[in-house]
Design a protein around this nucleic acid. Structure first.
Lengths: 154, 154
DNA sequence: AGTGAAACGACCGTAGA
DNA sequence: TCTACGGTCGTTTCACT
């Protein structure tokens, strides 16, 4: 689960990702026109970007629409090595998002659960059981109001 | 920006979205095989889902790789109508994610900025200036360790 | 809403620079 | 790493249900 910090992307790969942020299904031919490469070259680059995990092309929706009604952001305070705890938490399938932060918490995670039992099990049974997790604070989702991924094109 | 709470999706649309969570570029033909409809029908449904904003198909990456180095999660405490404040914050282009929550905050947002000046401007100049924003707490991102969107298929 | 068929365009492997 | 090209497969449109 360790995403090794990669070399900065070159301008063309950035442009390709920006195009895909606007429309993940845009054809390689169209992207090629914008960035000034051949279709095959664009395809190769996208392949590399996705294979290596640098980028992903995915369908995104509000989990609550698919029946996942117990979502939460959980702030975690860690005693000891933050990275070790982060890796452990990141390996849990219910954790959809994990960031290491500076401030009142060390780690913030988003968890996606179907119901209360699920959430309790994840929070008490799994997260708090992790060695090094000192304190947690849970923020239950009431509604997701915005999800945007096109900041690359601002 | 108001995402009106839609009727629950039927089983087939759920299945389609699950397929797209696994691979946003999966062909309609392949999806059609899985869900048991014709290609054309799948395409129509995907069109509707994306046009209506229920789902989006996008390229996703770690913003820090594109040179957006100042990201933060901001917890917001509101005095007054939370929804009004949420709408106002959601309209800001630097806000990539906004959820209404229960717990120590009323709203949590993720902001994507290029540099410190940008972030200061957004936080002090824009967010705190919003009528009804009582208190904010900022958690600066050090690293994004996990971003997953395939919870529909667990 | 969904199906089926035909024309069109996208995708993908390979060869060559 | 890129371009060029051809075979294959996916997409699109339309008439029909």
């Amino acid at each position: 689960m360790n995403t090794k910090q990669a070399p900065t992307l070159d301008g063309i790969s950035k442009q390709i990702i920006e195009q895909l942020q606007l429309d993940g299904r845009k054809s390689y031919a169209e992207i090629a026109k914008v960035v000034g490469l051949s279709e095959a070259a664009v395809r190769q680059r996208v392949q590399k970007l996705t294979d290596s995990g640098i980028a992903q092309i995915v369908g995104v929706t509000d989990p609550m629409r698919l029946g996942f009604n117990r979502l939460a952001m959980i702030g975690v305070r860690v005693s000891g090595d933050i990275r070790t705890v982060a890796e452990t938490l990141a390996d849990m399938p219910e954790v959809s998002y994990l960031v290491m932060v500076a401030g009142g918490f060390d780690i913030m995670i988003e968890v996606v659960c179907e119901d209360d039992n699920d959430l309790i099990e994840v929070l008490n049974g799994k997260i708090r059981a992790v060695e090094g997790v000192a304190e947690t604070e849970t923020f239950m989702y009431l509604a997701i109001k915005k999800q945007k991924y096109d900041w690359g094109t601002r």
